[in-house]
Design a binder for these strands. Structure first.
Length: 793
DNA sequence: GAGTTTGAAACT
DNA sequence: CAGTTTCAAACTC
């Protein structure tokens, strides 16, 4: 924090470098602050460190993760376009890979740097070549006038314009950027030379370079380009101020200092609850900057989406959202991911190479960004967990959002509420990283993961959405009391559990308790991260699925998500099933009902009247149904156990299903995601297909151990066990991925229920033979297996 | 807002 | 694995 420290890099006084002709030359060339800015950035780390505490909060992590995802998605593009730039930059920082080792803070700083880079690009004389961009860019520059204040408002305007042209102009934009990059390259080259002379500084630069690389990669994408413009503007504010003001180095540093905070802006907000980070310093600027940062982050996400092809809608909406979100985002950074994932899903379903590219890009970026853990794991993982919680909570909002989902506004709404924890702790990170490695195997897998995240996040919401709406007004009141956010966010009222047990909704959702919570003696806070993690591990050791989303959805593919998502909801079901005796599964006491899913075979409920569907199924004759026969068999058994009103149920079930499909289930997209992921892993052996996905994933789940250990599969197994009869296919898939050896615990929490006599085993083959006969009763919900079966001819 | 009901989670 | 207790949400008044 102290200026003196900043002034020196690696013990060498900055002044030395500043005095160097190279430095001057660079400064003269680049409108933006050159090396110095780098130093400042570097120094930012020190500033950031205090902020790092923010990251400890899962929320913050999530955001960051989302960013990384974006990066990843963009990265490939960046490779092509920015690669050249990267080379130069790489020269500056040869240790980019090492950058991974950088603290989270550094990562953030890098992001900031990246912004700067983009600015440089933008600021560079736009090539005349780009007819389209120039119009847009110049505007942005005008806005750039520099004050952070300008950043926000003007920025929107610019962005909007840009977005309009996006579809047409991407290529041109790219050229433009490239041109800018070329100039920049020359600068960099000079810098690199200089650096050679000044090794110490070079180190610093390395860090910066890493950022640059990331930035470049991000910016590289066409969508990024737009963003880059925006970003540039956003960033410019501070930067230009620095440059224009020609403030002393310290001032510059200070101004940049704010940047880190800004970059964290969202995080900070998220963290706001938790930890008072050291933001106090420059609140005014931070607010603005935070704004811009969020916007940037949002833009990045948008960019990803754009890449998918939904650019227009998403961007416009997203931009607006970004600002709106500012206040809102506290926890659920993941939502953005989810939103993205949805789009990815759509793109996947609809498409085309683009999606693949994205996935590839993401993967590549991940690979590139050895930075790692940071980048990828978080990206992928985070979304999942959070969503679960958020889903449930956010579901209310969903009705509104569904359209939004398509448009991309979802993203906005999503982020608001529940915030999740990201893998906050280093431990989590490590895990996440490990996961990355495991996951990395295939790009597709990655996509799937992301999708899952998205789906998961969404799914819960959907499932709950209607229910939530249905929820007693009191709840709404309570939530409303807390504020708009609160509705989406989970909040607990724990008194004895210290919020370290699954009793606590927040904890169960993998989210830290926040302001809205009225818990007592809460340990579920970033401050007690270690405790939380330890407790989590304990619980997971007992029940690996404890933090898994309770509602599992069979996702056939991303398609459901995108188009049919609304219709397919039926596929969702509760992981373990309920055990209701008095509520008739018509109240939120029932987890199935609460999750917006119908009861399934796994349920032990008595007098089930679940409006979303009952165990009993309808007679289905379709091929799918035949496949479902497997489920049915279970159902039949189930029915035997619980004879409800079959006839009525049929009608009700169908209606309900439609219902769910439209309203609730549509939410469940999340569920689909998960399975896809798992499948993806297995995919090598088998083509991806629908599988059972937990609707709401707690951020923790994915982020944490499951991925790392590749335990994910185990979960499936567990789920399988739970759902035993129902999910034949998924088990197979799971099997592929997770050999029994992995078998985390066969003792799933469900075990009680699961053990089922129903099928006893879920022997697929045998069943299939008998399917046709059994068809009578079909679970109201499309069994997970059914979906899977579809995939398998 | 307090009290009751409910069912999951945790414990034995 | 079953039964019991604990817990906090959901619900009612």
């Amino acid at each position: 924090m102290d200026t003196p420290e900043r002034s020196k890099i690696g013990g060498t006084p900055l002044s030395k470098f500043e005095d160097s002709p190279v430095f001057n030359f660079i400064n003269s060339l680049s409108p933006i602050q050159p090396v110095k800015s780098v130093d400042s950035i570097h120094t930012e780390q020190s500033y950031l460190q205090p902020v790092s505490s923010i990251f400890t909060s899962p929320h913050a992590n999530l955001q960051r993760e989302s960013r990384f995802l974006i990066r990843n998605s963009l990265s490939e593009f960046s490779k092509d376009e920015s690669s050249s730039d990267n080379v130069n930059e790489s020269n500056l920082c040869t240790g980019v890979q090492n950058a991974v080792s950088l603290s989270r803070c550094t990562v953030i700083a890098q992001e900031n740097c990246s912004v700067i880079c983009s600015l440089n690009e933008a600021t560079v004389d736009p090539p005349d070549e780009c007819s389209i961009l120039p119009s847009n860019l110049p505007q942005s520059e005008q806005h750039d006038s520099g004050s952070p204040d300008h950043n926000t408002a003007p920025w929107y305007d610019i962005k909007m314009d840009v977005t309009l042209d996006i579809d047409r102009a991407p290529v041109e934009l790219v050229h433009f950027v490239q041109n800018g990059l070329d100039k920049r390259k020359s600068l960099l080259a000079s810098e690199s030379e200089f650096l050679e002379n000044y090794p110490l500084e070079q180190n610093k630069d390395e860090a910066v370079g890493c950022d640059w690389v990331n930035l470049i990669s991000d910016n590289a994408d066409v969508p990024l380009i737009f963003d880059s413009n925006n970003e540039s503007e956003v960033c410019r504010g501070p930067i230009e101020e620095l440059g224009d003001s020609s403030k002393p180095a310290q001032d510059l540093d200070n101004s940049q200092k704010t940047q880190p905070d800004e970059s964290f802006g969202p995080c900070v907000q998220n963290a706001a609850q938790d930890p008072p980070v050291n933001h106090s310093a420059e609140n005014g600027k931070e607010d603005e900057t935070a704004h811009t940062l969020q916007i940037l982050s949002g833009t990045c996400q948008n960019q990803v989406l754009l890449s998918n092809g939904t650019s227009d809608q998403i961007q416009s909406g997203h931009k607006v959202e970004s600002q709106q979100q500012r206040g809102i985002r506290r926890r659920c950074l993941v939502f953005d991911m989810a939103g993205i994932s949805k789009k990815n899903l759509q793109s996947n379903s609809n498409q085309h190479s683009s999606s693949s590219l994205l996935s590839n890009e993401k993967m590549a970026s991940d690979d590139k960004c050895s930075t790692p853990g940071t980048s990828q794991a978080p990206c992928v993982l985070p979304g999942i967990g959070l969503h679960l919680n958020t889903l449930a909570t956010t579901s209310k909002e969903r009705p509104v959002t569904q359209e939004m989902l398509a448009s991309g506004k979802e993203l906005i709404s999503m982020p608001c509420p529940v915030g999740p924890f990201g893998p906050t702790t280093s431990g989590w990170k490590g895990k996440s990283l490990a996961v990355e490695k495991d996951v990395s195997p295939t790009e597709n897998e990655v996509q799937n993961l992301q999708i899952m995240h998205n789906d998961a996040s969404q799914a819960p919401a959907l499932g709950n959405g209607e229910e939530l709406n249905q929820v007693s007004p009191k709840k709404k009141r309570r939530k409303s009391e807390h504020g708009g956010e609160s509705e989406a966010c989970k909040r607990c009222n724990c008194k004895k559990s210290k919020c370290l047990k699954l009793y606590c909704e927040c904890f169960a959702a993998g989210v830290y308790c926040s302001e809205p919570c009225s818990c007592q003696g809460c340990f579920n806070k970033p401050i007690h991260e270690e405790t939380v993690l330890a407790t989590r591990k304990q619980i997971e050791s007992r029940n690996p699925l404890a933090f898994a989303p309770k509602v599992i959805r069979t996702s056939e593919t991303g398609q459901e998500m995108g188009e049919d998502a609304n219709k397919t909801p039926a596929s969702a079901r509760h992981k373990r099933g309920c055990n209701c005796k008095k509520s008739s599964c018509l109240k939120k006491y029932c987890e199935c009902y609460q999750g917006g899913v119908g009861c399934s075979i796994s349920c032990r409920c008595e007098g089930c009247k679940n409006a979303f569907g009952r165990k009993e199924g309808i007679v289905l004759i379709g091929a799918e149904e035949i496949e479902q026969g497997e489920h049915e068999t279970d159902h039949c058994e189930r029915e035997k156990d619980k004879p409800d009103d079959d006839g009525q149920q049929h009608a009700t079930v169908q209606i309900d299903e439609n219902h769910s499909s439209e309203g609730l289930l549509s939410v469940t997209p999340l569920q689909t995601c998960r399975p896809s992921v798992k499948l993806s892993f297995c995919s090598s052996a088998k083509p991806p297909r629908s599988s059972t996905l937990p609707v709401g994933f707690s951020p923790w789940l994915y982020t944490s151990q499951h991925f790392q250990k590749s335990e994910i599969l185990p979960q499936h197994k567990l789920e399988k066990h739970v759902n035993t009869a129902l999910e034949d296919d998924t088990p197979d898939v799971l099997r592929c991925d997770a050999p029994p050896s992995n078998g985390v615990k066969t003792t799933s929490p469900n075990r009680k229920r699961v053990s089922p006599p129903h099928n006893g085993i879920g022997l697929l083959p045998s069943r299939k033979g008998g399917r046709k006969v059994i068809l009578k009763s079909i679970p109201s919900f499309p069994s997970l297996t059914g979906d899977a079966s579809e995939d398998y001819p």
